Computed example of a mutant assay.
Amino acid sequence: MTISTISKPHERLAQILTSEMEAVNTLIRTRMASEHAPRIPEVTAHLVEAGGKRLRPMLTLAAARLFGYSGDHHVKLAATVEFIHTATLLHDDVVDESAQRRGRPTANLLWDNKSSVLVGDYLFSRSFQLMVETGSLRVLDILANASATIAEGEVLQMTAASDLATDEGVYLQVVRGKTAALFSAATEVGGVIAGATEEQVGALFAFGDALGIAFQIADDLLDYQGDSKTTGKNVGDDFRERKLTLPVIKAIAQATPEELSFWERTIARGRQEQGDLEHALDLMKRYGTLEATRADALGWAAKAKTSLGALPDNEIRTLLRDLADYVVSRLN
């Protein structure tokens, strides 16, 4: 298959970055090995080999390639980003008591919660070993801050999850923590290691931040109107798990006292009955919150594309622009 016949921008990026992605995958397999605890590579491989897009490490490689970087530190940083991402997934599935991830059983279901938490800790440790090897304190600072922000976002989501007072500002804070922080760190460190200017590094951060927000809003919207075969989730999983995502937050903000009682019973108290999901969807359609959420996702994708203006005009920048369109094209 040639690049010209590949339609999706992340697939075209993967094609351009084939040798570097192979080096990343080799490094991941090497560093997730454990001489004394064979369960570590077993659990890690279950997620790492699950066939994900590897979008975050690809962003690091693309950001470095954007500036013509010819070293190998971007490979270590891309592996670092993937380890951080995998560690957070292992921990998230324990916290959320999830049974499925990317259409497959979760690690905590196949093994147990203890294994998932401890292997996640191991991957965080490995990620810090890798980033130190680049010898860049700036890179270490960016990724350490991102790791702290991700954890903070997860705790905020847990405390705000079923609180009907959660507004769009808190939601955005959660999304910036749990999703956008790693996107922006992934692009930022690629630029730093390649010697980009401060303005260009700032533009890469802005791109990753906006792309991550658009990505998460689109995911939250697809939970209510997506295809379960494509998303790997059942429609309404977030509702059943009492998660206050943007479509629901927008509906609650406009709710009548009677509708507020419905949201209080189903989300805040978790007393859900047959037909509640359908009623929730009716309320979201009544107030146009699904369309409003879609408009927000498109707006963040547009911000991501605008931020690219300060970066070198080449094939990689074009693909990053296309990627911003792609993450919200799933909503069409």
Results as ranks from 00 to 15, higher is better:
residue 70 S to A: 13
residue 71 G to C: 05
residue 72 D to Y: 01
residue 75 V to G: 06
residue 75 V to S: 12
residue 75 V to C: 03
residue 77 L to Q: 02
residue 77 L to M: 11
residue 79 A to F: 04
residue 80 T to Q: 03
residue 84 I to P: 07
residue 85 H to F: 05
residue 89 L to F: 08
residue 91 H to I: 13
residue 91 H to F: 12
residue 91 H to M: 13
residue 91 H to A: 04
residue 92 D to R: 02
residue 93 D to G: 04
residue 94 V to Y: 02
residue 96 D to M: 08
residue 97 E to P: 06
residue 98 S to I: 08
residue 99 A to K: 14
residue 99 A to V: 15
residue 102 R to H: 10
residue 105 P to D: 01
residue 107 A to S: 03
residue 108 N to L: 03
residue 109 L to F: 03
residue 109 L to S: 13
residue 110 L to S: 07
residue 112 D to T: 04
residue 113 N to A: 14
residue 115 S to I: 15
residue 117 V to H: 09
residue 118 L to C: 05
residue 118 L to T: 03
residue 119 V to S: 06
residue 119 V to L: 10
residue 120 G to L: 08
residue 121 D to P: 11
residue 121 D to G: 00
residue 122 Y to Q: 02
residue 124 F to Y: 15
residue 125 S to I: 05
residue 125 S to Q: 04
residue 126 R to Q: 15
residue 127 S to L: 07
residue 129 Q to E: 15
residue 130 L to S: 00
residue 130 L to W: 05
residue 133 E to F: 10
residue 133 E to T: 05
residue 133 E to S: 11
residue 135 G to W: 08
residue 136 S to L: 06
residue 138 R to C: 03
residue 141 D to G: 06
residue 141 D to R: 11
residue 142 I to T: 12
residue 142 I to M: 05
residue 143 L to W: 09
residue 143 L to V: 10
residue 144 A to H: 11
residue 146 A to S: 14
residue 149 T to W: 09
residue 152 E to W: 08
residue 152 E to R: 14
residue 152 E to Q: 15
residue 152 E to S: 14
residue 152 E to H: 13
residue 154 E to T: 02
residue 157 Q to W: 13
residue 160 A to C: 13
residue 160 A to F: 10
residue 162 S to Q: 15
residue 162 S to W: 10
residue 164 L to G: 07
residue 165 A to L: 13
residue 165 A to P: 10
residue 165 A to F: 09
residue 166 T to L: 08
